[in-house]
């Protein structure tokens, strides 16, 4: 069971309190009608699914209820950081240097 730091509650809490919500930083297009079928498919279905660092969304569903983002290594399942929804993906090199 993962231990996840909710950036709003500022506390590391068990995974049971959280719901995974898929890859992060895939913003809904402002005007979907302008998109080609291929572009719309990319938004709907294409996912990076990396073996390694993954930016992903979680919701503290049995807590504050807020969505937030996380950087997690999908090989070790280790979280590098979590950050509020809407913030850009943090620079990993800076994160690792800070450790």
């Amino acid at each position: 069971m993962l231990l996840i730091n909710c950036p709003y509650c500022d506390d590391a809490l068990p995974e049971l309190e959280f719901a995974y919500a898929g890859e992060a930083h895939i913003a809904r297009p402002a005007d979907p009608s302008k998109l080609s079928d291929e572009e719309w498919r990319d938004f709907l279905f294409i996912r990076s699914n990396p073996r390694g660092l993954h930016a992903e969304r979680w919701r503290h569903i049995h807590g504050c209820g807020r969505f937030f983002n996380a950087l997690r290594d999908t090989v070790s399942d280790r979280f590098l950081t979590t950050y509020p929804a809407g913030q850009p993906r943090p620079d990993v090199t800076k994160l690792e240097a800070a450790e």
């Binding site: 069971m1 993962l2 995974e15 049971l16 995974y20 890859e23 699914n49 073996r51 993954h54 992903e56 997690r72 999908t74 090989v75 070790s76 399942d77």
Partner: peptide, 11 residues
């Protein structure tokens, strides 16, 4: 969650 760790949790 997406993972390649082949670990999985107890719950």
């Amino acid at each position: 969650y997406v993972s390649y760790s082949q670990r999985g949790g107890l719950p």
